[in-house]
Every structure is written in C-alpha cells, then in structure tokens.
Design a protein around this nucleic acid. Structure first.
Length: 468
RNA sequence: GGUGACGUAGCCAAGUGGUAAGGCAGGGGCCUGCAAAGCCCUCAUUCGGCGGUUCGAAUCCGCCCGUCACCUCCA
C-alpha cells in the first residue's frame, strides 16, 4: 500500500486524503510550456513543483503516469515563427529542445508523455464534434465557440460568477465575434497567412484550451486523478477545460486540481519592463549553481508566493553546500567500532518528519527543516563517538530518499586517487607540514586554491574538493 | 465593483489551542601550525494592531491597518 498523502484540492478548497481512481496508479496532467521562448524562473517554479509531486508520489509507492503538454500553436508561437520567417514546426522545435535542456539542468525527471498540440489536431477536432453533438457549440464567422450557458457547472473550479464576469470592467472586445463575451473559442478560423488545418470544422486551428482536454483524455482517460498548473490557469484555462471535457463526456474530468502560486522577484512582480525577468540561462551566465537554483525554487511550499532574491539564492547555495560537506565528512570518516554516537532512532525520526512534511500537501519547507536537523545530528556524532556501520547505512538511505524526492543532494565529490597531480601535491604538502615547513605547505595550498581545489586537514588525512 | 490569499527575528521559513522548528546572515568560543569543514553559545517573553472567547491563542472570533493575486495575454 502506498503511503497516504494530503492535497489541498482547488476544486473543493479543502485538504483531502488522496485516492487515485486506480489504486496505486496516479494519472496526472501537468501544464507545460508554450514554446515561443526560453522558460523563465517562474515557469520553472511550477515545473519543479510538478517534479516534486511526481517524485513524492513515486517515493510513496505509487506508479505515476504523467503527461506534460507542449503548446506549440498559439498567437505567440505563430507570431514568433512569422517574424523569423521559419515554419511553426522549426520555430517551436528550437524552444522545445531548449526546454528539455533547461529541465535537465535542474534535474527535473522526465514525464511519460510530452504531447505537442499540433500532433493531436485530429483528437481535438473530434472533441469539438462531440461537443457539437451535445449542443454545446455554435459557429460564427468560421470559428466554433463553446456556449457556456449550456454548461451549468461553469465556474465551479474558480468560483467565478459568470454574471459578475459579464458585468466586470475588464472584458475586452475580442477580435473574434462571440455571441456572449463569456463564451470561448474552440476552433479558430485561420486568418490569411496563419497556419491552419483543413478539417470538418473548416480551415483553422485549435483554441488555447482545447489541446489540454484532448491530449489529457487521449493519454490518461476521460477521467483522471490530478491536474496541475499555476494559479493564473485556474481561470479561464482550467475552467474551460472542465467545461469542454465534461460537456463532451458527461463524466467528471479531473478529481484533484493543484495550483502553484507565482513567484515574485526581489519583492516585485517579475516583468521584462521591470528589469527583473530571469531565465535559467540568465542565472547560469551569472555563475549560479543549478542545484542552488533548484533548492531555492522548491524551498517554499508551492501554494505560497516565493520571493526570488539573490540573497535567497546565496542562502540556497549554502544549504546545498552544507549537505555536500556533511556527505564528504561521512565519506572520509571511518565507521565507529561500536554503537557510535548516532542512534538509528534519530534517523527514523528524521524519516517520519521528512515524509510527514511531504505527505502534508508537499510541505517542502518542513521537509528541508528535517534534512538540516539530521545533518546537525550527523555532524555532532562525527565530532563525538562516530557513526556505526548500521547507522551509516541508514543515513545513506535517508539521503538517497531526500535526493529521490527533492533532488537537492550534490553529486559525490572527487576522491583520493582520482587526480594524480593533486594527490602528489597533497603528499608534498603533508611532508612539508611534518617537517613544520609551513611556508612551503601554505604555498602548495594556495596554489591549489587558485585552481579551485580546497584542502581540508582532517584527523583521517587531508581531503580535497572543488570550489563551486 | 466581484472573488481569494497573505502579514512569525536582518532575510527565507515551520508551526492551525498548550506555552515560538530549521536555514542564511551577524556576534562570541572550541578545534587547527594557520586554514577549511564541523561543533558549542548567542540572535523573537513574542508572532501587523486593537478587542473578544478560553485555565491557556501565533493558532479560534470581530474590527482595523498593510501587502498581494485573479476577474479571458500570463507558469
């Protein structure tokens, strides 16, 4: 039996114990990028939340089937391709490749499916036809619209009262004509020069919301467990997906909806005009460690606004380093002969708190707190009676769990014997120290430091690692 | 105008009735030839403000102040 987990379901606004439709197997649809540009750190915050969700479910014993869409047809991709004079496919291929590169850099696990909207035109058309058969659509000027007056539950996810929306001040006149401003387009008639598909619905292209319903139901079934995205997707995107999907099938579309809050930068909304807009590439160019970026972006629970600051990024880097330092100490310290100073119960209580945090609607801050508490216990033991072979094995396994779920454990450091030249210099320095020739010893250390090699003299010999 | 969040130390943040986790930064100390790493001590009598409920509230209720998000571009 998989471990129980609680989620705050946007649909019910309540904390619920999660039960997949098929016991032990979670089917989830996670909103992916629109591939017209490099992804920014706000996008990545959402993708990392989805990654933690996936990893946690797996660590808790569920099988996961995850779909992440790649939106390769919309106003922005069309415009981008046109302005560069390349095909839509060529344009979006480029940003899809960049997207995968970026999520790989942040150690995001791959989903099972990455469908592209333009590869699912047929399924989208069929979905519109089903909606038409059930009387949910109308055609105007060659475009097909969803008439929300035919879907009584409209607004159940966002809590938006459609009458208020109609009365609101910000409904602007769409360039397409609708019967009612609240209706949304399913199939857009192509304008001259725009990409389009000749289909029974006419020459056109899918509306924004259609792909997610079509691809989600094709790959995961008409009803599935989890659908995620960022908060701005709640309305209208996800609301419209529900209308389209349930309107077509008459079945509940998704059981649990999870939405990530946005991040802000240095206290302000991230915007190109504010000069605080960052892609992953921008941060890497400034020399920041991908693992530190990941740590920072997952350190605040997903339902809270995350204030991305460079101070915070430095703190995150220090957090990652602390994990690595402790692992290095662990690796270079021989096991205690007897029971050592770290009771295995200490590791057990860590696991309880760590898993408990994740099971509580993915409380990553609580989980990270537990990690640091464990690190302190390990270091204390290392400084006193040492750590037994058995306790050591449990710590290793605990850290593997941390890495499996949060993905913030640094790779093992280079070990003695991996670089003959460095080992030679260290031996030379050790000899100098024995001879109390500290000037010589310090000169060697300084030379190594300049090469990015940091030495540490421990009771068990001199060890080294690279600076970050 | 409608709907919904949030306000805990210099910064990030846990904590949803029982007397303030954790990290970063700062100060002092131990260890070291000196470092590095680590450890120890220190850093909120108090949780935006004012009332109320309670034996007891950061946690529940009311009012006020402040910040923010969504209301068909938006992760």
């Amino acid at each position: 039996m998989p471990r129980e987990i609680l989620f705050l379901n946007t649909m019910t606004r309540r904390m619920e114990t999660f039960h997949p439709l098929e016991p032990g197997h979670v089917r989830m649809y996670t909103c992916g990028p629109t591939v017209y540009n490099f992804v920014h750190i706000g996008n990545l915050r959402t993708f990392l939340f989805e990654d933690i969700l996936r990893r946690t479910l797996q660590a808790f014993g569920y099988r996961v089937t995850q779909v992440m869409n790649l939106t390769d047809i919309d106003d922005k991709t069309i415009k981008g391709a046109a302005s560069e004079g390349v095909s839509l496919r060529e344009f979006t291929d480029r940003y899809i490749a960049a997207f995968f590169q970026d999520i790989d850099t942040l150690h995001v696990e791959r989903a099972e499916h990455y469908p592209r909207a333009t590869d699912f035109i047929k399924q989208q058309v069929e979905l519109v036809q089903k909606l038409t058969d059930r009387g949910h659509t109308y055609v105007q000027d060659g475009s097909t619209y969803f008439r929300i007056a035919t879907f009584g539950a409209y607004g159940k996810l966002s809590g938006i009262d459609v009458n208020q929306v109609k009365a609101g001040a910000r409904v602007d006149a769409d360039e397409y004509e609708k019967e009612d401003v609240r209706d949304f387009v399913l199939w857009k008639a192509s304008k001259p020069g725009e990409p389009g598909w000749e289909t029974p619905l006419g020459l056109g292209r899918p509306g924004w919301h259609l792909e997610c319903s079509a691809m989600g139901m094709t790959l995961l079934g008409e009803s599935f467990d989890i659908h995620t995205g960022a908060v701005d997707n709640i309305f209208p995107h996800h609301e419209n997906e529900i209308a389209q999907s349930e309107g077509a099938t008459g079945k509940p579309f998704v059981h649990t909806w999870l939405h990530a809050e946005h991040l802000i930068v240095e206290g302000q909304k991230m915007a190109k005009s504010a000069g605080n807009f960052f892609t992953l590439r921008d941060l890497l160019e400034r020399g920041h460690d991908p693992l530190a970026i990941r740590y920072l972006l997952i350190s605040v629970p997903y339902r809270q606004k995350l204030n991305f600051t460079f101070d915070g990024l430095h703190a995150a880097a220090a957090g990652v380093e602390r994990i690595g330092n402790t692992m290095r100490r662990l690796a270079h310290t021989p096991p205690a002969a007897g029971d050592g100073a770290l009771p295995v119960s200490e590791v057990a209580s860590f696991t309880e708190e760590f898993d408990g945090g994740l099971a509580d609607d993915l409380n990553t801050a609580r989980a990270l707190g537990a990690v640091h508490t464990l690190l302190t216990k390990v270091n204390q033991a290392l400084d006193s009676g040492g750590i037994s072979v058995e306790a050591r094995a449990r710590v290793d396994s605990a850290l593997r769990r941390v890495d499996a779920t949060l993905g913030i454990v640094p790779k093992a450091e280079p070990v003695a014997g991996s670089d003959a030249e460095i080992d030679g210099l260290i031996a030379e320095r050790t000899a100098a120290r024995s001879a109390r020739d500290f000037a010589r010893a310090d000169a060697i250390r300084k030379a190594l430091t300049e090469r990015g090699v940091v030495l540490e003299d421990t009771p068990h010999g001199t060890v080294w690692h690279l600076t970050k």
